[in-house]
């Protein structure tokens, strides 16, 4: 397997009036062709910013301040805006959480797809229509050609997200960053979209980064999981291993707060406290103030430990799977 995307020590900072926020802090990972990885964390953990950084879509006052992102072997960090634009949508695409917000309500689906096509290719109106129809059919939209004339509000939530996926797939990119693509959808539709995207990824050999706060959804689609906290990746491993045998106390907390980790009638377990403000991160491990295992050793930033296929950033890793209650 060759890596289509290699991220090394990526660092994205926001220079606000209140201070500098390091939203993405030395993030490294690689993505193989056709692989699906899950990027998991609470809101504010920096997972979305990581996704936007990969496409070079960080707006002022933010900026990528270090590291490297190699897509198909070419370095994206420091690339000119024009060069970046030519790669966006063609080699790397992105899907967002809320399709009602991402699609322009005042343009037909056909117009919006046409715009996305003409960003990289010059096609006749007829060829454009054919390509768009084909793209819609691929994601399972019935009577696709007629629907090109419809507006976003004439589609259901799940159908709208399918349209967004069709737009992302138009140029057959190598990598798709999916930022919480099913969070705004009904649970039943969620499962459908997840299954379909898994199939599409396999069919087209598209690698995907699936960003979500929902470990359950991620475990259904991703083969590998990266857990992010306060801008850093704190644990990685195959989906099965991370779920069965979490090493970082934060991952354990995320797993425990999932509804099916508790018995009916029992209170949901939650991680005590909340994400620290990114403006005033505690020294050392950012999770320490909320961590049941924290002690004096946690005031230094833990090194990334790599062992087998797994890595973690914790001084007190949970080597025992049965820490703090039963495992499911």
């Amino acid at each position: 397997m060759t890596a289509v995307l290699e991220v090394r020590d990526l660092r994205t900072e926001f220079f606000t009036a209140a201070g500098t926020v390091r939203a993405v802090n030395d993030v490294s990972f690689s993505l193989d062709e056709g692989e699906i990885i899950g990027l998991v964390g609470e809101s504010g953990s920096g997972k979305s910013v990581t996704g936007f950084s990969l496409l070079g879509l960080i707006d002022a006052p933010g900026r990528i301040t270090g590291g490297s992102v190699r897509l198909n072997g070419s370095e994206l960090v420091g690339m000119s805006r024009g060069e970046l634009r030519r790669r966006r949508g063609r080699e790397i695409a992105m899907i967002f959480q809320d399709p009602i917000a991402t699609l322009n309500p005042l343009l037909t689906i056909g117009q919006q797809m046409g715009l996305a096509l003409s960003a990289h290719e010059r096609l006749s109106p007829k060829a454009t229509e054919d390509r768009c129809t084909e793209a819609l059919e691929r994601v399972g939209i019935p009577s696709a050609r007629a629907r090109l004339k419809s507006y976003p509000h004439e589609f259901s939530g799940g159908m709208r997200q399918r349209v967004a996926i069709a737009i992302a797939l138009l140029h057959r990119p190598k990598v798709i960053v999916a930022d919480e693509p099913t969070t705004a959808l009904d649970v039943s539709i969620q499962a459908q979209i997840v299954t379909e995207m898994k199939m599409l990824a396999r069919e087209f050999g598209v690698a995907m980064i699936w960003i979500s706060h929902d470990l359950a959804v991620v475990s259904g689609i991703a083969s590998r999981i990266l857990v992010m906290y306060a801008g850093r990746i704190v644990e990685t491993g195959t989906a099965a291993e991370v779920l069965r045998n979490p090493i970082h106390p934060y991952t354990r907390g995320l797993l425990d707060s999932m509804p099916h980790a508790t018995r009916p009638g029992e209170m949901l377990r939650q991680i005590p406290g909340s994400m620290p403000s990114m403006l005033s991160l505690p020294p050392g491990c950012a999770f320490a103030p909320r961590c049941p295992r924290a002690d004096a050793a946690c005031t230094a930033v833990p090194e990334l430990v790599q062992q087998g296929g797994r890595s973690w950033r914790c001084v007190h890793p949970l080597t025992q799977p049965d820490h703090e209650g039963a495992t499911a």
Binding site: G89, F96, N104
Partner: peptide, 19 residues
């Protein structure tokens, strides 16, 4: 998000403004 999505699809800033 509309503009972010358009940028992610590789549309130029001029096209985004105009359309």
């Amino acid at each position: 998000d509309t503009v972010k999505f358009a940028r992610a699809a590789g549309l130029s800033e001029a096209t985004i403004l105009r359309r």
